[in-house]
Amino acid sequence: MGILRAAWVPDDDPERDWEVAAELAVDWAEREAAEQSATAVLVLNAFGAEQTVPALRRFAQRHLVATPRSGRQRAGSGAGPVLAYVPDAKTLNFATGLARNSSLAAVEGANLFPLRGWAAQVNAVDLTRPEDAVDVLDARLTSALDRLKFYGNNGYGPPFDRQQATRILGDLRAADLLDRDVVLGAMAAQGVSPNGLKRLGQLIDAAGDR
């Protein structure tokens, strides 16, 4: 099984303080941990980031903290809800693995890795607008993403896979459905590796993103 439930805090309001964004994610993750009677994990790009945000510092005192560098050992065996704070692609991939069969909340740092496509792919609740319906992807885009995933199993390394991905991206561009951030985020949700996402981003740039 994959992630059971997901939520996110979009980085879409320059007036929103990072403490507010963190509190929204912390509250959601705490509820998930209580419901699952499990210890949560705070996932960061690097240790120390939690010390600058009071809500995260308190969360870290009650739960576990891990980074991609520390690996799964740091998270221990009490796998439960995961809170990923402004993850880049590598950190999001790590957090997704830890959250398997549980829940994942992510606070977006758009300059590091935009999460719009990820959120739509995993039906994540927008914690700034929890009563709103979750975003959904265009059916044509969803079909194309499934095909992109098929050719991304080897990280878009083999020439044939890159050729097929380029063809699919060209079709998306012609249909005015090629949004770099959405495609990369959705592919991250589908398990494409960080290196694969990097190569796919290069292919999107070559295809001419909008």
Score class of each variant (00 low, 15 high):
32 E>F: 03
1 M>V: 13
87 P>Y: 11
149 K>D: 08
89 A>R: 07
33 A>T: 05
188 A>V: 10
76 G>R: 01
130 P>I: 09
80 G>N: 02
20 V>L: 04
57 R>M: 08
200 L>F: 01
38 A>F: 06
3 I>T: 04
131 E>F: 12
119 A>K: 09
176 D>A: 15
111 N>A: 15
14 P>I: 11
1 M>D: 07
77 S>T: 12
128 T>D: 06
80 G>R: 06
75 A>T: 09
168 I>M: 07
135 D>R: 14
35 E>F: 14
131 E>S: 12
97 G>D: 11
127 L>Y: 11
24 L>A: 11
150 F>M: 13
35 E>D: 12
9 V>A: 03
146 D>I: 13
126 D>M: 05
209 D>R: 15
58 R>G: 09
187 M>I: 09
163 Q>I: 07
35 E>H: 13
157 G>L: 15
88 D>L: 07
203 L>S: 06
158 P>T: 12
11 D>H: 07
139 A>Q: 14
104 L>H: 01
163 Q>V: 04
73 Q>I: 14
110 A>Y: 06
146 D>M: 13
157 G>I: 13
67 T>S: 11
50 E>G: 02
197 L>E: 02
142 T>P: 03
55 A>E: 02
4 L>F: 07
6 A>Q: 05
166 T>M: 13
151 Y>C: 05
169 L>A: 09
132 D>W: 12
10 P>T: 05
121 Q>R: 15
186 A>Q: 10
77 S>E: 09
55 A>N: 00
12 D>I: 09
180 R>W: 10
87 P>K: 13
122 V>Q: 07
150 F>C: 00
93 N>L: 06
169 L>Q: 09
202 Q>I: 03
13 D>F: 07
11 D>F: 05
97 G>H: 06
33 A>N: 04
162 R>K: 14
65 V>P: 00
148 L>R: 09
